[in-house]
Design a protein around this nucleic acid. Structure first.
Lengths: 196, 196, 196, 196
DNA sequence: CATGAATGAGCCTTCATTCAT
DNA sequence: AATGAATGAAGGCTCATTCAT
């Protein structure tokens, strides 16, 4: 990639990161291009140099988010820990990012009338990819008799897990709560019960 | 209440029910008054005979939803079943309504810039009221040594429960799945693990 | 006229009187049928039993106003007072009605795109009729050498008079001012200077 | 100010001038943003680039108008003419602008439910400022025994003057009348009688 | 590359008007 | 005669998008 393109790429990611925060907060229709731009001290028009349209910008922000999640989860899955510890760390990673306001699994709950079919499919593909990493770890745990559930229920358990995690951003209360690490520890323990 | 008023009230609820479906799907900003109206074979203008503005319509739809949930949950809590069975039934009720597309706990994830402060407070109050019914049942279970968690963690457990439940509408796949009752049964069992 | 019709006529006048107050305040476009109705404890729809449409209602309110003014002015003109006193009393009558919130000369400053051509013509005809009564009295005063202006300037003087009078409602300040009679006396004296 | 900003400012004033003509004619509620825009061969949306909303546009048009009037009046007041001539010229200036369709003292007769409280106060402040220039000149005339009225009546006289002047646009009939200068001369003479 | 400016479609809302009852 | 209910045409305003400079 040329220097030019690299620079452009960097700027794009900068925009996407900033946009994510806003999108997380107010959703697709509630977030304006104007807002996204002004948060970055740019003008609306400039965004269109980097992205064809709003849809593309938001789509790419989702992709980035999912890919980041996947890559982090993969790293943990590949570690040499026990399945229990792997799952623990994956959950904590997920929650950590969520609280730090970077999640996107909440965002586009029903992306039907926002994204094109291909875009939707890609998003679902990545979501599934992310989820499968969880599945694999759970599977591993089942085989090692650390988790007690039939293999055909792995997906159900995983979905419940993801749901419970994603909801945390709704009720987690920064200042009042115990310290973040303590909080994460407690939540993780209860979540693990789903599979044990 | 006069006959006239009753009729008007009925129509209002009809509108609210219909609006809920759409709002659930596309969120506040993604749902237009036009859509809400045409779904009911009315014109946009007619909605304004029943509701002052969009905000009020959506607000009332949330209130109705929450109140319905509260009333159903209360009935189950007051039954003479064991805490385990109570919780089971409450979960199944919740999921059932969710799948039948009536939930609203998902809807207004961040009602900040949609509702007025008072409206937000009322919504939070009702959400809390609903959640407390869960708390009570869990409490009861703890005291009867049916559930194993310290009392100070009841709220955490309840929140994880609600999150996992609300997420179900994201992945539950009507036609392909096992029959609804079987599905509910399975999900409920895994959810109960959180508190056992 | 049948009793029916008389009753209807009375109600119409009641409506017109009430409408006048509002129209005076907020103008044609600023006053809604809803407001007019609710001020009379009726519903919007009922107004349409008495008046074909908003235009007609407003038009008739203007006519009534002008006719009342004309009739009052005629009475004063026909009295046996001196032209000076006649004019004085006409001015005071006009101001009195104005302050009591009944004037309409201000209202439809440019009735062009509100009224039909015929309606406009009728309104102008009546305005002119009202003004001519002033002209006659001034004329009389000129002939008796009580007023000093050439006859060809009578209309100019009369228009200045009317303008100054109509403006009074803009600045007259009820509570703070001297008593109404004192105030009227003072204003009238200065106005008379125009023709003396 | 940068060139860009100057250009924007110029455009704003262009819009305001054009809007004034329409507002003068049909009042606040009778004038649409659409009309204002199309008169300038722009689209509705473009107006919102220059003004936050209709209220602001109209408000600023009033301010400009008042400030122009004040500045012109001040110049005349500061001249070395006799109070009589000063007043004469101020009246003629006012009438001249009025006939050339630039007055705004008529416009917002009751700005109550159009403008915000602060906006109203500013408008009243400027109206008062304009009026006070008249007061000062009249005062001067009184002290030089050129005008005969007690000082406590200056405001009354001034208000009658302004009212009579503003009304002129209602009845002044361009084509039929004598030439404008002659007309102004005549009107001014009669108006001066109020204070002499 | 970026900006200021403009466009146009679409949304929320108001309101005169109609009409069955 | 009057009302509740509904309609439809605007009107104000927002916002994604475009484009000349």
């Amino acid at each position: 990639m040329s220097l030019r393109k690299k620079k452009k790429q960097k700027k794009k990611e900068e925009i996407l990161q900033s946009a994510l925060t806003l999108l997380e907060d107010k959703g697709y229709h509630g977030t304006t291009m104007e807002e996204i731009a002004s948060h970055l001290l740019m003008t609306k028009g400039a965004l269109y140099y980097y992205f064809k349209d709003k849809q593309e910008l938001v789509y790419e922000s989702q992709i980035i988010l999912l890919n980041e999640g996947i890559s982090k989860a993969k790293k943990l899955r590949n570690s040499s820990e026990s399945p229990i510890n792997k799952l623990k760390k994956m959950i904590q990673q997920h929650l950590h990012d969520l609280i730090r306001n970077q999640s996107g699994f909440k965002l586009m709950v029903k992306p039907d009338d926002i994204f094109s079919t291909e875009q939707q499919e890609e998003i679902f593909r990545l979501r599934e990819k992310y989820a499968q990493i969880y599945d694999e770890v759970i599977h591993e745990g089942v085989e090692q008799k650390l988790f007690s559930l039939p293999k055909e229920d792995v997906k159900i358990a995983r979905n419940l897990l993801l749901g419970a995690m994603n909801w945390v951003s709704q009720w987690y209360d920064f200042p009042k709560s115990k310290s973040i690490p303590n909080f994460l520890e407690a939540v993780t323990d209860y979540l693990l019960r789903i599979v044990r």
